[in-house]
Design a protein around this nucleic acid. Structure first.
Lengths: 238, 238
DNA sequence: GCGTGAAAGAGGTATAGCCCAATTATTCTG
DNA sequence: CAGAATAATTGGGCTATACCTCTTTCACGC
């Protein structure tokens, strides 16, 4: 997977090479070859090596000491929440997931969605609105936005299952990172009706921006979760 | 501060220039000058401009669209969730933290709190209710429960600062892990008044159970965050 | 009018080379 | 031999150029 992600460019291959070096036997705080040496050995320019090292440094795989060298970093500990789809999530909670598709279509990205997906505002996005069910009862109203160019024919497919599985099996897109913003709101009457609760009930607003294995944006989704049936659990360390 | 940090290098000055551009009148999603244009205007090479833009992109001040341009990003308010006290949290967000103590006292743990703190329901717990302020305005109403036996004399101390610092300095308790449950609710009139919002406004409910360095429970806290002034941002990997 | 396709314009990647700054190794000197 | 001066090494920064891919524009032909 790592190799697949890195295969496209020289800097990616340099990165893979360095990752292999680190994984095969190097200990934390061991010194890596110098930038000039790596450039020479791998037949690339030093800037390209630096590009790869910058990426590894950002991921805390290595650290640098000016004038001295580049070293293997200690493995980081964190790893917080897992990235799961609603489907997996519900199964894990012991409930039977379900879906009711409300409406689907294409529209212009606009400024907000465009910026989340790194698309121009004039680009076309697919919009899917679905009510997600647990044991038959509404839990969540989600509005998914996807780059239309990357999911051709998606709207002709069966959309009542896991979108992440669909993206993986038919478009080779593996979701691998996400940022979520969690806030609270009260439900508009229309949304409340879809969720089968009284108007102005409390709800969690979750905005999720997902990126794929190449770190390109995949989806931007805004979900409204019924507060009486859903809450987030987060473990925090250190 | 920003300018001081950037003054040393050309790319820093380019960055400062761009930050000034963004702050002076540019709106989110406005297009920035092209990389080549900036390089020309500022008399630096394009690579230097790209260095500056990479830094701004990493800080989410701008975003890029391949083939189209670089644009002003929407201001992001929140950082990733870490185990921080409210005090640290607010300072990090660039706001001045404050506290208004509502009431304090001791009571029986009861079933709910007792189970969270691994205490018998008949054990005595300290309860502290505080309104937390950011730049003088209410953000959060928190109710803290602590094992009374572990924090003797706490209620005689100054409670308007960071509780975590107090626990560390006077009781040798270092908070090191937490589980949080995040849900939504609408505010009861009494709570709404303390938070200075209309009754039945939306709020985030955060229940946090904190354990110390020996993994013994330290506190159980229920906090109500004003939905209009607070949201959580979470990064998820893999 | 209305696609269509080429050209122009944007960011993305890469090269080779220069000098600077911090560290480390070496040499010189008292 | 110890300490100081110096040289070599290493990462940090920047330039100028080249070519790629993707988007947007716009003139051309139907």
């Amino acid at each position: 997977m790592t190799d697949a992600r890195n295969a496209d460019h020289k800097s990616g291959r340099v990165r893979s090479h360095l990752e292999r070096l680190i994984d095969d036997g190097l200990q934390p705080h061991d010194k890596l070859p110098t930038e000039r040496q790596l450039a020479d050995e791998l037949g690339v320019s030093r800037m390209t090596v630096r590009h790869a090292l910058n990426a590894l440094e950002a991921d805390r795989r290595v650290y640098r000491v000016h004038g001295s060298g580049t070293f293997v970093a200690e493995p980081t500990i964190d790893k917080t929440i897992r990235l799961t789809s609603f489907t997996e999530d519900m199964i894990e909670r012991g409930m039977k997931p379900g879906t009711r598709v409300i409406d689907v279509g294409t529209e212009y990205a606009g400024a907000t969605v465009g910026s989340k997906l790194n698309l121009s505002p004039a680009a076309t996005v697919v919009r899917i609105r679905r009510v997600r069910l647990a044991d038959g009862a509404p839990v969540c109203l989600e509005t998914v936005h996807l780059d239309a160019a990357r999911v051709e024919g998606l709207l002709d497919r069966e959309l009542s299952g896991s979108l992440y599985e669909l993206l993986a099996s038919h478009y080779g897109t593996i979701v691998s990172k996400a940022e979520q913003r969690i806030a609270a709101t009260v439900l508009e009457p229309g949304d409340a009706e879809l969720l089968d609760v009284a108007p102005f009930s409390a709800a969690l607003v979750v905005e999720r921006r997902t990126t794929d294995q190449h770190l390109r944006p995949v989806e931007f989704t805004r979900s409204l979760y019924r507060a009486d049936r859903y809450s987030f659990l987060i473990d925090i360390e250190r």
